[in-house]
Design a protein around this nucleic acid. Structure first.
Lengths: 341, 341
DNA sequence: CGTTTTTCCGTAAACGTTTACGAGAACACA
DNA sequence: TGTGTTCTCGTAAACGTTTACGGAAAAACG
């Protein structure tokens, strides 16, 4: 069915070695024979078998993206990751690399699936998302010497891998800034309860800005919840029952914000009127919610592209002249002012 | 670094053939030696190299999912496909199959990328989405004899491949039914302008129901637009300017519905009060929009699982006792009544 | 014309598996 | 004891590439 390099060789009465060299653009092949090989390849509709190539070269030309859902998250952080994936895939495709997507049951740690990818050598590198503060996937990969990059920072693994993250700290800071400028002094912060690193970063920025404005941090205004709608719904009242009610809430996650607004509505509190609401990572849901939620938006597609570049630069095969470089980038968010604050 | 089957053989002083047979559970190997092999494999942390395996067996153990975005669609039909992908991936993983996701620039036909996957034998089968009425991807794959399955029906390719689709016809029918029962007689239909098959199916159901209720089909109440928010925004006024204004609109796509509602709002027409709105395929956006949009919802994750099963059953390697079976399933939608109708 | 360099190509090994084939040993049976 | 059967394993080929090596022919050079 499919023609192999042997078919080409036989057809041209030439050795397979020469055919391979001609196809791969090596110098030591006559210009005319190269022409003949290329033509024959076109005529016989030849394309190299990837398995053969992978085996010989020890590289699969595919990158694995691990989507580890948070426990309780049925949607895999859905709207957030897609644009990132699009950018990632686009840049990888330019280098003729394929993208493998590895998911898992929500809540189940994916060490097993990760090991499988690494040990059976199904991919040349891995991209991790949803990084934890302490992330055993990162530990595993660095120990195994397997190339990887992460979307999000972590405290694990040291500075040995490329990573790219959103500036959550700055966003938390700016959100407070904006609210203070509008007269708020009692500002609540609601973030995910898991070990997710961005929750800590957000809170750092939140605290820093409060201090700068001379506002004391009230632990009663900070709450952690499950990183989904139910979590926001459940935890928001706790903050509203604080003895000195907040006049503003910053949500560190869109789903939690939606749940929180539902809780507020049931308490007769209208976001945008009775209370200001800002959410740290914007998704389409924020835009269509009523009232439309003011939110900080990352440039996810460019970020995907960029992380692909960083990963490629760190791969031995693609490394630039300066060899393996570790990069670490933190991207700003853009405030999208809407109706909720 | 990684141990191969040769390492195991050397370590056990045994031939690689025996090792392989032991690992693969063949009958012609002594129980005791099998034990020794398995133990050594665990101790040396052996897992088979997938490239070697693929080459020898002529199967990559991975399935490609082609996400062909509509022209003008920046989001890849985003919220719609993720749950489907989750289901698909879950079932494939149970069979130790990997999922490769192939995207492309919006608007660009993906024949090239598809050819590459097929010709370089990077996957054992392909799953297609966004099927057109006449779909050259389907033509290509059937002609090439490459296994595939589709999410969505098409007129191409005959009955030679497993496919699974939503019952758009029924949904269009039921939507009309519901509206008529609530007193509407002037019901508009807005659907995508592309050759997408579901647009035709939806309209069939719409027409059928109107006829059943003795309502004449008014071409002025049917409009096609770009399958995104801008398309809905642009085309909805056209239908509202019909000389006898509709009192209800059925949108065949969530993004178009959102754009349409924006246009309605600018005309001072309030969905849920001044006009009834129903959208055929529900996404999270419909739920959070204000007013919350009544919509028909598919069971995407189970559908993903099911299509995986159907595809597997059609593969030579996994085919059941009855051999290759072609299946064709059409799944119902569930009406989620909200505030917009 | 002899020697050296360059150009071009064929040979064969290697990547890590799986598997068809056959052979030796053990066993059963008459 | 001779013959046939069953167990178990080793040998080697095969999958489709890429590439190190060497050699023949052609070209360059004196």
């Amino acid at each position: 069915m499919a023609s192999s390099i042997h078919d080409l060789a036989r057809h041209l009465n030439i050795s397979i070695g020469t055919v391979s060299r001609a196809l791969n653009g090596r110098a030591d092949v006559n210009a005319e024979t190269r022409q003949r090989v290329l033509e024959a390849a076109r005529k016989l509709n030849y394309s190299p078998n990837q398995s053969g190539r992978s085996l010989r070269q020890g590289a699969t030309r595919s990158i694995a993206f691990m989507l580890q859902p948070h426990p309780g998250d049925q949607q895999y952080g859905e709207p957030f990751f897609i644009p990132f994936l699009i950018g990632l895939q686009a840049r990888l495709a330019e280098h003729d690399l394929d993208l493998m997507v590895v998911m898992g049951e929500p809540g189940q740690y994916q060490q097993e699936r990760l090991r499988r990818v690494v040990e059976t050598r199904r991919a040349d590198a891995v991209v991790l998302a949803n990084t934890r503060r302490e992330d055993d996937r990162i530990d595993y990969l660095s120990k195994a010497g397997f190339p990887f990059a992460t979307l999000g920072r972590s405290q694990s693994g040291g500075d040995t891998y490329p990573s790219l993250d959103i500036d959550f700290e700055r966003a938390g800071d700016e959100a407070v800034d904006r609210l203070v400028a509008r007269g708020h002094r009692r500002i609540a912060a609601i973030r995910p309860s898991l070990d997710l690193n961005f929750g800590y970063l957000f809170l750092d920025g939140y605290r820093k800005a409060l201090k700068r404005h001379g506002i004391e941090v009230d632990p009663g205004l900070i709450a952690d919840g499950f990183i989904n709608e139910a979590g926001g719904y459940q935890v928001t009242p706790r903050v509203m029952l604080s003895k000195d009610r907040p006049t503003a809430i910053i949500f560190n996650n869109d789903a939690m914000a939606l749940g929180g607004c539902k809780a507020l509505a049931e308490m007769g509190i209208r976001p945008g009127h009775d209370i200001a609401v800002i959410v740290i990572v914007d998704t389409p849901l924020c835009r269509y919610f009523s009232p439309a939620l003011t939110a900080f938006r990352p440039s996810l597609e460019p970020m995907g592209r960029r992380l692909a570049e960083m990963l490629l630069a760190s791969l031995p095969a693609h490394a630039g002249p300066e060899g393996t470089r570790i990069m670490r980038e933190i991207w700003p968010l853009e405030l999208i002012a809407r109706e909720s604050d």
